[in-house]
């Protein structure tokens, strides 16, 4: 464990908590893409299957349980409890266009052709594009509540911090994983446009307005 990875995990945890609080407090999931949340749930379920087979550390196990539970709770709040506030017609990204390529890519480019490895690889590829429906929703509505932009900033920062973690691990332990790094770079690049808007607008107290 290193400071970059710890900061990344805490940023990820913060993002998930911000989202849950936003939906719970405002009793509304307006502006949030349910499709992205479905993709994140798939990412966690396919990546954390080893929760029951290999014990790495208490931290590792607890975080995996928290991520799976929080994503389940978010889906429940969005699709059951506050279903009426779900923005169906703006949340229209075709997630099969993300799922299918990720499955194919995971079958072609992976470290090992075993079930666990393919699922892990699929999860890594899917996570890199899972935010697209959310960014698509923000672009369609043209704006985002400030709490939603804080959520996106924390979520984007998590994988950016992981990139620093991978640089550190390469230098300190000569450990690297090109699949995770490549997907992490793609994932972080998708947030760049949002990071620019967040820093130039939201941090100055303005609302996140995308140029029409």
């Amino acid at each position: 464990m290193n400071i970059f990875r710890l900061a990344g995990d805490l940023s990820h945890l913060l993002a998930i908590i911000i989202l849950l609080l936003k939906i719970w407090k405002t009793r509304s999931c307006a502006g949030i893409s349910g499709k992205s949340q479905v993709l994140f749930a798939i990412v966690y379920l396919t990546r954390y299957l080893d929760l029951f087979t290999t014990y790495i550390s208490l931290y590792n196990s607890i975080m995996k349980i928290v991520f799976i539970a929080a994503s389940g709770a978010t889906l429940y709040l969005m699709y059951v409890k506050f279903k009426a506030t779900y923005d169906h017609n703006h949340d229209s990204f075709r997630i099969e266009f993300l799922l299918i390529p990720c499955v194919i890519l995971a079958l072609i480019i992976n470290h090992d052709f075993t079930v666990m490895e393919i699922l892990w690889t699929f999860s890594i590829y899917l996570e890199s594009v899972a935010i697209l429906p959310q960014l698509f929703l923000v672009s369609k509505t043209g704006e985002a509540e400030s709490i939603t932009s804080h959520y996106l900033f924390a979520l984007g920062s998590y994988r950016a911090l992981y990139l620093l973690n991978w640089i550190y691990r390469y230098m300190a332990e000569s450990h690297y994983d090109l699949i995770a790094i490549f997907a992490g770079v793609v994932q972080t690049i998708l947030y760049c446009d949002f990071f620019y808007l967040y820093i130039t607008k939201v941090l100055k107290g303005k609302k996140l307005q995308l140029p029409a």
Partner: peptide, 10 residues
Amino acid sequence: RIEEDKKDEL
């Protein structure tokens, strides 16, 4: 070597 220690990341 990469295999086992890759899985220690979330």
